[in-house]
Amino acid sequence: MKAVPLKKLKDELSHKSANELMVLCLHLSKFKKENKELLTYLMFESHDEASYIESVKSQMDLLFDEINTKNFFYIRKSARKILTLIKKYIRYSKKKETEAELLIYYCRKLKNFSPSIKKSSRLLNVYQTQLRMIKKAVGTLHEDLQYDYQHEIENLEIPS
């Protein structure tokens, strides 16, 4: 089955009643976990972005505490898993401020992680890539916000 273009879906949805739209949304939420998570964000968390960010940060803290530190392979695997989760939450929000906040927090946790990520070139590469993503996201924000985030970005830099 081939998916129809977004415009055609939008046109078709405009002809549906409120009850039919509710049924479609509920059906989508039952079909895939991500759809249900996105619907939860849109209905319950999008109005208070600060508490959403805090809840993601607390979840991130728990995940970092659970990392197996016996081997850099496990650390890297867990760090990538956490990053994938964060990226999903960033996609839900679609706000550059949220992206910057969450990625800065992730990089801060990774930088302060023990054993040091400096001992693993692959973890350093992940870290440097996320720093570039932060700079890109911050570059699109208002000048005042850019100034506020710039100090945090400077603190995240790892000297060679």
Rank of each mutant, 00 (worst) to 15 (best):
I67Q: 01
Y89G: 03
V23Q: 05
I75L: 03
K7W: 14
Y74L: 15
L38D: 05
S58E: 12
E49A: 09
L6Q: 08
Y74E: 06
I104Q: 05
E34P: 07
I53S: 04
L83T: 05
P159K: 12
I75C: 04
I82R: 00
K70W: 11
D148Y: 10
K33M: 11
I104C: 13
M22K: 14
K95F: 12
K10I: 13
I117A: 00
K111M: 01
T98E: 04
N155T: 07
F64P: 02
I134Y: 01
L103V: 02
V126W: 08
K87E: 15
H142M: 06
C25I: 15
S78I: 01
A50E: 15
E34M: 09
E101G: 05
E154C: 05
I90D: 02
S160Y: 07
V4R: 15
A18E: 13
K57F: 03
K136W: 02
I53T: 06
F44C: 06
E152A: 11
Y149E: 01
E20D: 04
K95A: 13
K77I: 10
L131V: 05
L156R: 01
F73C: 07
L63N: 12
Y147F: 09
Q130M: 11
H27W: 08
I134H: 08
D65S: 04
L103S: 01
I117S: 00
K136M: 08
E97V: 13
P115H: 02
H151G: 14
K135V: 04
E99Y: 10
I117H: 03
L28A: 15
Q128S: 12
L83Y: 12
F44N: 12
T40V: 11
K135I: 10
R76Y: 13
Y74F: 05
K16H: 06
L85W: 15
L28R: 14
L102P: 12
L28E: 14
D11I: 15
Q59V: 04
I134G: 01
H27Q: 14
A79F: 14
K2N: 11
Q146T: 01
C107T: 02
M60D: 01
L42C: 10
S14L: 09
